[in-house]
Structure formats: structure tokens, C-alpha cells
Design a protein around this nucleic acid. Structure first.
Length: 553
RNA sequence: UACCCGAUGGUGUAAUCGGUAGCACAGCUGGUUUUGGUCCAGUCGGUCGGGGUUCAAGUCCCUGUCGGGUAGCCA
């Protein structure tokens, strides 16, 4: 194996160059979520990038809550975000911060800006501000209050802080350039009056800085060297730089933008995710169908797989869409090598082996992993009555169907060959039981060569369990497109099965991941108990038979 | 119709600053296999268009096309 140096993405290239040129002694990054929702797979990309870089180059990564809008932010999210980042495998050490830690400092920066004649209080209503801002194609016009004396603005701003004015009565604006082609530079609002109890500062403040006035300065205060964010902030960079240059901040961070992670069949808009939760389309933020970190965790996706996805997707400025199947493939890869094999019959069909003596029973050694003897074996009971999956029987099978059918012979994995001799139906004409004979000489690979090998669970010792089969939440590749995005919710995104499991699955815990042979990878739901086991499907196995069928049609 | 950004096989990316367009996944074909899984081998397929500079252009210049972002007292 040649140990080839991995190519650097453009951000790592910049970091490496800066280190080489000694522009910085070390790297300091930060992950700055707003605590207004749960973290999702898109955030994982930013987390892996920011924490990954400092692991590789030496340095530190801060976790900083961007909590400048108490109208939307909640303590619950602050808690959940920390749990999710840790679970993903990253550690911010001592460096847990909040933008609100800097409210006092930010306030004094604002006063300094006013004193320098570079900010002013504007009490015009929002509609007027909007009109004066101009349009995408036309320059804005100056506010009549733009040239008011600094002292007047300073006085008003201080009184804004003391709560003398009502919400929205006036704002503080940076004085930059109303005719700039970049709308963010047209005297942006940097402070607004907002009477909301803040999760951290309570009612200490009734004015709050806007994102633009908080983020760069917070970076500078924390001596962040590389402030990495997504592409939609590209147009904000001139303002970011302007503020850093015009304020007495202790360092000069640099903002670099990269494209966010987009996955097919997935929404990663916090607003939409919140709506799914609030309107009950899913069972909560951690519903296993959600692309949230907590949802993926509950479904059983290992954190390594999420990190691997982020690694494979890379870091660029190109806004592509990654096929969700790539993620599924990564999860399978991970679990294929790690997960012990078990047998589980999702949709049980009873099989009576008519020539197997009643009262007889035996125990079969089954390997826990076909490719890894080191994982050992386990005992499987075998007797006259077994369960097989409904999918593994067809009364009138198509060509190339290797499984069970009237007169057909298949191998019960690790056990015997059986031949279907009779079909029992209920009043509705549905197949409810099969009568088969077994070949006593076929154990361990003997008997007729058969193409079909199916999984099974003996009725003796089987446990009943609920198994949740999850599929993509949406039917459309791009669910966000259009207004009626909720219309393409996948009605089959959850199928609840009542299944028969082999006994060894009884005392698995959430996070213990196993493969149900020929089916998929599963883990117990956190709510699962020994008395009432519930398993979640993490991801299905690749289904070659489905592919063949699709071609036949 | 202002400004900013982007464009390499189906998808995600690489090409160390102008020097053989490579990797992974998916697809297809075959092999192995007590999972129609895994694994192995082979195969298909790409520099958005037009000019220019150069011995040589994915890379530099000009121009066009297409896509995305931006008019919150959201982040």
C-alpha cells in the first residue's frame, strides 16, 4: 500500500499556506450554530471541517453559540447541540462560548463606531428603510438622519439600551455606502430593540446586535484565524472585513466560504425541519427519518459513517447534490465489517416440517460473521416449526426466483434443505402456512445443490419484536422545490413489522448494531426493552433481486 | 436585468500554480460465495460554448451560455 498524501481542499490549502508563511502561529476555528433548532447532516460537514482542520494542523476549535436573536433561540437546543457534536466525536475542551458572552464588548464597539462617525441611530420605520435601500439594480438613497451629530446618535443609542424606546422604534446603522452594489453595505442595521428573554442573559438586554455585528467581532475576540462559513455569507464578507477594520478588535480573522452539503431526497432547512416536527409529520427532532444528527443516531447510523460522508464529499465552492445512496453505501460499508450477523424474520410465514419428528430439537452453530471467524459462533435452535419471510415464498414465481415455491427446494441457512409440499390458505385466500419436508442428509451443505438460501427462525425460542423499516422521508429528489413540498412526503417512509427474532437479539442495547441476514442493518430503538423489543432499520442491504426484477419488467 | 460566486464522466471530487485528465461511488459484464450480501476482475464514460496567448491550456486572457446567492429590525 502506497501511503499517498491526500489532496488538500482549497480551505486546507489556505490554512497550510498561512501556517507556512507564519501568518499565524496556529489555527483557531469555530463551529457557530444558532441554537434555534437541532443539528442536521449539513452541520456535520461544518463540524468535521472546523474540528478536522485543527486536529490535522494543531490548534483549537471553539463551539460558539450564535445567540443574538432571543426570539428564536432556546436552551433545549443549546443542550442538544452539544450532545450531538460530542457524539459525532469532537471535543471543544474549554472553549465553549456564546456570542452573548460578548454583548457588553459589542455594545462598546457600537459606541466606538458612533463616536468615529461611522454609525447612526435611525428612527425611520422598516418600510422606509427598505425603500431607501434601493433595489438589486438601483442604488439606495441616504437616510435624512444619516448626517445627524454623533452626540445625538450616541445619546439615542444609550437610551435604546436603557429601554426608553419600544421594540422597533429605532435601529443603529453602520454608515457605509448607500450606493454600494453590495446591498449589505448600504448602511446595514447593526442593533435593534427587542424585548425578549434571552436564554443566557435573561432580561439584561433589550437591544441585540445583528448577526453581522456579532459574528466577525466574536471571531476577533476569540482570535479565530479562519472563520469558515457557507456560501450564502459570501456577500457579507465585505461587511465582515469593514467591521474588523473599523473596530478596535484584538485580531483579524478571515472569513472563507464553502458550499453546504446537499443530499437528494432530503431537506436540510431548519425552518422546514421545524415545521415537520411542529406539524407532527415526524415523531420529533430525533425521528429516525429525520436528517438531524439525533435522528441519525436514533436510527443507528454510526458517527464514523457521517464523518466518512463528509470526507468523501469534500470541500469546494460548487453547489452540488450528493446522492443519498452514497451515504447509504458508506453506512453499509462500515457495518458490513463491524456488525455481527443474526437471523430475523420480518414478515413471518409459518413452516411445518412434516417429516421432522415432533418433540425433536437440535442446536446449530452459526457463525457470527462469514468473513471473520474471530467473531465466533452462536447456537440456533432448530425444530419442526420454523418461520420464514413471506418474501421468500411465491406461489407462482417468476423466472430466476430461487426461493421457495410449491415443489421447490431451498436451503435454510446453516441448517437443512426443505422442499415445499403444501400450501395452507385462510378464508381470504392468503397463504398462511407451508408444509415442507426436509432432507436429513443436507445438513452442513449436503444434499441437492440449490440456488436459494433463505433465513429462518425456529418457533421454539423465537422472540416477538416490533421492527421499524425506515425509508427516505420524501419521494422527490429535491423535496424543497416548489411550495407544496409537504405533498411529496413519502407515505411509506415507515413500515412497522411484527417480526420473529432469534433469541440472542433479546438483550441488545441501543447502539449495538447487527445485520439481519439478507435484510439489512438494525439496532434497538432507545425505547426498546427486553419485554417489548423494538428494532430500527439503519439501512437495507443492497438488493440484487430487486434489480433483476426491475429489469424483467 | 446590478453585484458576487460557481461550472471536470450519471454523482462527489483530483490534477502540487501551463506539461500523459486520475480516484471513489453508481452502472454494465463475468468470477467467488451456505446472505440475490460481501469480495475480486474487467468495462462504459468527462474538462459548458466560441475566440486568443503558447511548442503545450481543465489550468492564463477575452467573450458568451447556464446555475446559485443577495433588496430581514433572521442567521
Amino acid at each position: 500500500m502506497s501511503e499517498e498524501e491526500p489532496r488538500l481542499d482549497f480551505i486546507r490549502q489556505i490554512v497550510a499556506d498561512d501556517l507556512k508563511s507564519r501568518r499565524h502561529a496556529g489555527v483557531v476555528t469555530r463551529f457557530p450554530p444558532e441554537p434555534n433548532g437541532y443539528l442536521h447532516i449539513g452541520h456535520a460537514k461544518a463540524i468535521c471541517l472546523n474540528f478536522g482542520i485543527v486536529q490535522e494542523y494543531g490548534g483549537r476549535c471553539h463551539l460558539r453559540f450564535d445567540d443574538t436573536n432571543p426570539a428564536k433561540e432556546e436552551e433545549e437546543y443549546i443542550r442538544a447541540i452539544q450532545e450531538d457534536v460530542r457524539w459525532l466525536g469532537f471535543d471543544w475542551g474549554e472553549h465553549l462560548y456564546h456570542a452573548s458572552d460578548y454583548f457588553e464588548e459589542l455594545y462598546s464597539y457600537a459606541e466606538a463606531l458612533i463616536e468615529a462617525g461611522k454609525a447612526y441611530v435611525d428612527e425611520q420605520p422598516p418600510e422606509i428603510l427598505r425603500d431607501e435601500r434601493g433595489s438589486l439594480t438601483e442604488p439606495g438613497t441616504d437616510s435624512p438622519l444619516r448626517s445627524r451629530p454623533c452626540e445625538e446618535s450616541l445619546d439615542l443609542f444609550r437610551r435604546m439600551r436603557t429601554g426608553e424606546f419600544s421594540d422597533g422604534a429605532m435601529v443603529l446603522r453602520a454608515k457605509i455606502d448607500m450606493s454600494s452594489p453590495n446591498l449589505n453595505l448600504r448602511d446595514p442595521v447593526i442593533y435593534r430593540i427587542l424585548r425578549q428573554t434571552h436564554p443566557k442573559t435573561g432580561d439584561a438586554w433589550c437591544i441585540y446586535p445583528m448577526y453581522d455585528f456579532a459574528h466577525g467581532q466574536s471571531d476577533a475576540i476569540e482570535e479565530i484565524t479562519h472563520s469558515l462559513c457557507t456560501l450564502e455569507f459570501e456577500n457579507h464578507r465585505p461587511l465582515y472585513d469593514w467591521l474588523v477594520k473599523n473596530l478596535p478588535v484584538p485580531s483579524e480573522p478571515r472569513q472563507i466560504e464553502f458550499s453546504r452539503l446537499n443530499l437528494s431526497y432530503t431537506v436540510t432547512s431548519k425552518r422546514k425541519l421545524l415545521q415537520l416536527v411542529q406539524e407532527g409529520h415526524v415523531a420529533g427532532w430525533d425521528d429516525p427519518r429525520m436528517p438531524t444528527i439525533s435522528g441519525l443516531r436514533r436510527r443507528g447510523v454510526p458517527p464514523e459513517a457521517i464523518r466518512e460522508l463528509c470526507k468523501q464529499v469534500g470541500v469546494t465552492k460548487y453547489e452540488g447534490v450528493t446522492d443519498i445512496q452514497v451515504f447509504d453505501g458508506i453506512i453499509r460499508d462500515q457495518l458490513n465489517s463491524d456488525a455481527p450477523r443474526r437471523m430475523s424474520v420480518l414478515r413471518p410465514l409459518k413452516v411445518v416440517i412434516t417429516n421432522y419428528p415432533e418433540g425433536q430439537a437440535e442446536e446449530i452453530d452459526a457463525p457470527n460473521h462469514p468473513g471473520n471467524e474471530g467473531m465466533g459462533t452462536r447456537k440456533l435452535p432448530f425444530a419442526r416449526v420454523v418461520w420464514i419471510d413471506h418474501e421468500d415464498f411465491m406461489e407462482d414465481p417468476p423466472k430466476k426466483y430461487f426461493r421457495l415455491a410449491p415443489g421447490a427446494e431451498v436451503r435454510l441457512r446453516y441448517a437443512y434443505n426443505i422442499t415445499c409440499q403444501g400450501v395452507v390458505k385462510n378464508a381470504a385466500g392468503e397463504v398462511v402456512e407451508l408444509h415442507c419436508t426436509y432432507d436429513p442428509n443436507s445438513f452442513g451443505g449436503g444434499g441437492n445443490k440449490v440456488k436459494g438460501r433463505i433465513h429462518w427462525v425456529a418457533d421454539a425460542g423465537a422472540i416477538d419484536a416490533q421492527v421499524n423499516l425506515y425509508d427516505h422521508l420524501f419521494c422527490e429528489v429535491d423535496p424543497s422545490a416548489g411550495e407544496g413540498w409537504l405533498d411529496n412526503l413519502n407515505p411509506d417512509s415507515l413500515k412497522v413489522m411484527h417480526s420473529k427474532l432469534e433469541l440472542s437479539l433479546a438483550d441488545l442495547a441501543h447502539g449495538d448494531r447487527v445485520q439481519f441476514e439478507r435484510s439489512g442493518y438494525f439496532t434497538p430503538d432507545p425505547s426498546s426493552t427486553t419485554q417489548a423489543p423494538i428494532f430500527n432499520r439503519i439501512v437495507a442491504l443492497r438488493d440484487g433481486w430487486a434489480k433483476i426484477q426491475a429489469k424483467q419488467n
